[in-house]
Structure formats: C-alpha cells, structure tokens
Design a protein around this nucleic acid. Structure first.
Lengths: 349, 349
DNA sequence: CTGAAAGCGCTTACAG
DNA sequence: CTGAAAGCGCTTACAG
C-alpha cells in the first residue's frame, strides 16, 4: 500500500505559503513576493506559483501577515447606530474609498453605548488595524487617546467634541438648523416652534442655535419658541403635538422645526390623525436627517439632509493620508454642509 | 548623561507581553496565563502582572494571538444590506449572543453585491475568524464551500438556497404570506391583489404561495390577482397604484398584499394622495418586514414582522456550538415564524 | 504554580 | 530575480 505524501495531504487545515512554495518548487520568500510585489518576480516563476496557489486553494493568513508586517490592510469603523441611515451612508462612503485604496472596511456597532464603543475601539486596536474611523457618542472621547497612544491612527466623523488634535469630518449643524428655519420663514411662516430634543446633544443645540439665528435676522417679524424634550423619537413627537393642540388654534404655531425625522413623523402623524389639522396648510413641519422614510410617507417630509456618503469617503481619505505619511501629516478638521430637501410637509402639493 | 533603559522606553510602539513580563519580573508564559487562565495564577503574581499591564497600557496583539492559538475570538457577519432593518436586527441579536459568549462581532456589508459578499467572506476567512454568519444574496453560495474547505465554520441566516449541509436559520416566508392574506380575508376583503415583486426572489415567491394558499382555503369566495414587477421599492408601488387606479372602481381590489413595506408605502402614498382613495376604507394594504417607518407614517402600516433579533441570536449560538464541538456537531436547519402586526392601513382607526 | 523553549505563518532585509 | 534566515508577539505543552 503506497503512502506517498502529497502536498495536498494537509487537507483538513488551510494550506500555508510553505505548501505553495514546495509545490511550486520555489522558496517561501518568492511566494510572498508573488503575493505582494508580483512585478518583481519573473513571469515564469510567477505563473508557476500562481498555479500552485490555485491548485491548493491557498488563502493567506492575515493574522500572520499583520504580525510580520506590523499592520493590516483593514480599516475599522465604529458606528453609533447602524439603525440610523446617516451612519449607514457613512459606512457606504467609507467602504468605497477604502476599497479604491486596496483596503477593506469592517464595521462595529456601538449601539449608542459608550462601553461598547470603547470595547470595539480596543478590539480594532488589538487587531492592529491600519486605522480607525469613529463616529463617536456625544460623550467621553477617552478611547481616542488610548488607541492613539498605541500608535493607532484615528479620525472622527460626525462629532469631535471640539477636538482639533486629530482629523475630523463634521457637518455644520448650526447651518442645518438655519436652513430649516429660513425655509419656513421664506414660506411665510411667522410663529415657529423648535420642537423637542434633549439639551445635552451638541447636534440638537447647534441646530437650535441656527434656527434662532434665522429667526433673529427677521428683526422680530418671526417668533421662535423652543420646547425642550427628552428624546428624538416618534412618541415624543406625538406628545409634543398633544401639548400644542391643547392650546387652542390662536396660540398654535404655523411652523415646526424638528431636529429629527422621527420626531417630525410623530408630530405630523398626531397633528393630522388625532387633531384633524392639515400639514402644511395649518402647520408646516420640517424634520432633520433625510431618513429613507422621510420621502415615502403619505405626506412626504421636508427635511435637512447630511452628506453621509461624502463624510465616509472624506474621513477614509484623511485616515489613509495620515497612515501613509505619518511624518508630514497635519491634522485637518473638515466641515461639510447640509442640504435642504423641500417636500410636501412644508410646500404643500 | 545616564541612559538607563527603562521598560517604558519603547513608548512609540505598543508595549508587548515581553515588556509586561520584564516589569512584573515574571516569565512571558505567566503573563499569558494571567490573561487567559487567571484562575491558574497565584494571587500575588497575578496582581503584580496586572499592575504592570496597567502601568504600561498594554493591549494584547490579537494578530499574534490568533496566529499562535490558531483561531480568533471574533465572529464575522456578512450582511446583504445594512440599510435594511431586518439585517440590522440580525446584527444586534448576533452581537448580544456573541458578547455573552466572550466573542466579538464584526460586520461587513455586501450591499446586495455578490462580488463584495465573496470578498468579505475571504477577508474573514483570511483572518481565521472563529466563525462566519452569512446572510447571503439570493444567488450563488460558492463562497460557502470555499471557506468551509479551509476549515471555517459558517452558518446561513435568512436564506440558504435549499442547503441542509450547514446550519441555517430561516423564516417561514410562505407562512408570512399566508398570515398577510388571511388577515385581509378575516377583515372581509374579497378581491385581493398580491402586488409587485420580481419572480426571481425566493422570499417573494414563498410569500406569494402563502397568500395563494390562504385564498384557496376560501373555496372561491376570495380572488387573488398577482401583479409581477421589477423591484420592491416605493416608486414601483406608485407605478402599481397608477395601474390599479386607471381600472375604474368596479375592477379595483379591496385588499393589497405587498411583499415589502417600501412597496406598500409607495402604494398607499399614491392611492391616497394622487387618486383620493381611502386606506383602508376603499382598499386595505398590508406590507412586509415591519420596518421602522411602517409604524410612523400618517397611516401606520399593517405588516408582517420577522424575528431578526432572534435570528441573529440563534445563528450565533448554532455557530458557537459547531465551533466548540466540531466532532459531535450535527447541522441543524431552523425555521422561525413571522408575526402579523395589524395597524391602521388594514384595521382603520 | 512558574519558566524556558518551540512554533504559529507570514514579511523583510540581505546575500548571492 | 531567488533563497536562507531572522523575527513579528503571542500560546502551549513540558519540565521543574
């Protein structure tokens, strides 16, 4: 019974570069060169090695590669909330930029939980990823310092807590609030409400400030009432509608700025459904975020959209720039502009 | 000028376990034991090592760990579409189960692109992750065989192309379609339409079959017309509404089953907005997926919800079972049940 | 319970 | 252009 040991013998575990080298009758280093610097290898040897790779079904062990090379080709993106389309857009943008530059993007969802955010930062740090993009909670940025101390490059997106000591890509929230209020004012609305929003979220605060600026530009022609709230979701919007409706028509606003689409949806829903008011004839409502559902309801919603895809692309490019030129790199803090999407909930038909 | 070399000297790169061992005055192996089997180390040494770890800000290099140990503590989840809340729910469920078992979950978004799906499978394969969960496209499953040949464990979720040679967690789509039609029939609707959906998606086909079964149970009392379409999005829904409305009232259905919430939203939007019909008084509409926006529109939408969170949890548990007991593992194919969410778009107020 | 040593599968100078 | 060798930072028997 012949028991010739073939190269394919170790079939139960993945074949290694050593197996490939043996089959192709070259040295280990040459196999590595075929993989990493093919232009340096002679045509004939390259083809022989490639054939062996295909024959064995070899896949490179990226853990070993990272260890030997000192870093990986993976970018880690830690997101606040994969359920939110802004972050999904950011992820898509980051992925396309990463792919174009020969990197791959892995996602982690912190799910609006600081502990998870820190945990995933550590995981990417431990994995010695090429770099990290963080869409952080509106909270502690301790993790940023921690991973940077280990030499990890990181760029912040959507929120940076005022930091300028690392790259960041933000959106001008104040301008978004301004656009929303300005839009209602331009449509002739005179009694505005900025509805809801906890006062501990920087984005909401900035949007409110923008709305106030637009209002004060009218020199008293337009009033802006601010109603604080606990959250940005739809039930909160219903509650606010109830409060407003109970006032009686004369004291009701004719325009509402909501700092989230969900909030706006709850407001519209309750205003039209329960209280029989017409949107926008009686009250115009504008949301924020340009979520998928904003354009698909029975009353397509006006809203402020953020350039998520571009945020992701820009953040990735900044990161790769920093990774590739650690010496001459200067941190940059970019600010992108939001856009008004005017639809039925303010324009009418 | 004294140049005593301290342990902290190598500050520019991350400290290694060797550095920790030196500072704690123990051997490398002991540091490893403190990290991996703390119960085996004497209290005093453990504390000394822990102190050194804290002092140096040491983080384990998971690439080296994976290489030496032969596998990582990471589970890779490849998703069809992070923009779809079903997959987001699956990710959340998988994450909680993974965390409970001392693993971490990394996501990759294939974005309904087979090439990306295959690419990410390879990346997780190359990284020698503990296991992979794949929510595959309704297409080739070649990648599954490829990564399994390398010894990688993989479980399929949401779609399995009929495979029973690996673990899978599916939802009974046929039953979902049945529930939707049954609901409309129970409400007294007699002329149903199954609206839209390409006929090359297994899920849509199964839902249609379920709706047909519910209809035939009425022995002719209820009719079901099937309208095929190209996609499942909102514009397609508007188009379908236009077609239906152009028929004249007598030939219009009194109930519509849409195989996606987006499609249903488009239908409702156009029916009520453009054609002045009432939902559900004139036509009841039920969607599918229980997306976030389904409950938040002006007309909260009835729909069929899938247990995404549980799908993710179950898939993760199956995977870890397979990873931990490779010998006695028997592949299981689980089928979970969808649920009816009855709201205004069928019930009325 | 602790330490010395081999080895995981690659990359990277360095000689040839 | 190719090959032999060191080394990346861990884990894991194994002896003590």
């Amino acid at each position: 019974m012949p028991r010739e040991s073939t190269a394919e013998a170790s079939a139960d575990s993945a074949p290694s570069m050593n197996d490939v080298a043996r089959v192709a009758r070259v040295s280990l280093g040459t196999v590595s060169n075929v993989l990493n610097k093919p232009e340096i290898v002679a045509e004939r040897t390259r083809l022989r090695v490639q054939a062996a790779i295909d024959e064995l079904g070899f896949v490179r062990n990226s853990a070993a590669r990272s260890l030997a090379a000192g870093s990986s080709r993976t970018i880690g993106l830690v997101l606040t909330d994969v359920g939110n389309s802004l972050f999904v857009d950011i992820a898509r943008g980051a992925e396309s930029a990463a792919t174009e530059n020969g990197h791959s993007l892995l996602l982690a969802n912190s799910d609006v939980n600081l502990q998870k955010q820190e945990g995933y930062l550590d995981i990417f740090d431990e994995a010695r990823v090429a770099g990290i993009i963080l869409a952080p909670l509106d909270a502690s940025l301790d993790g940023v310092d921690r991973v940077r101390r280990h030499g990890r490059h990181i760029v912040l997106v959507n929120y940076a807590g005022g930091r300028t000591d690392c790259c960041s890509v933000l959106v001008d929230e104040e301008h978004g609030g301004y656009l929303a209020a300005r839009h209602l004012i331009d449509l002739g609305r005179r009694r505005l409400v900025f509805a809801g929003g906890p006062d501990n979220l920087h984005a909401v605060n900035d949007r409110r400030k923008g709305a106030m600026r637009a209002t004060s530009e009218t020199r008293g022609a337009v009033s802006l009432e601010v109603i604080f709230g606990r959250s940005l979701n739809s039930p909160e919007g219903r509650r606010i509608s109830g409060d407003l409706a109970s006032r009686g028509r004369s004291r009701m606003p004719d325009g509402i700025i909501a700092p989230s689409d969900q909030l706006a949806a709850g407001i519209i829903h309750e205003l039209t459904g329960t209280y029989g008011l017409r949107v926008p004839q009686d009250i115009a409502v504008i949301g924020y975020d340009n979520n998928q559902f904003a354009s698909e309801g029975a009353i397509p919603m006006s809203t402020i959209g953020q350039p998520g895809h571009e945020m992701g692309r820009v953040a990735t490019n900044l990161l790769l720039e920093e990774v590739n030129q650690p010496g001459e790199h200067v941190h940059r803090n970019l600010m992108l502009e939001p856009t008004l999407f005017a639809r039925t909930s303010t324009l009418g038909r």
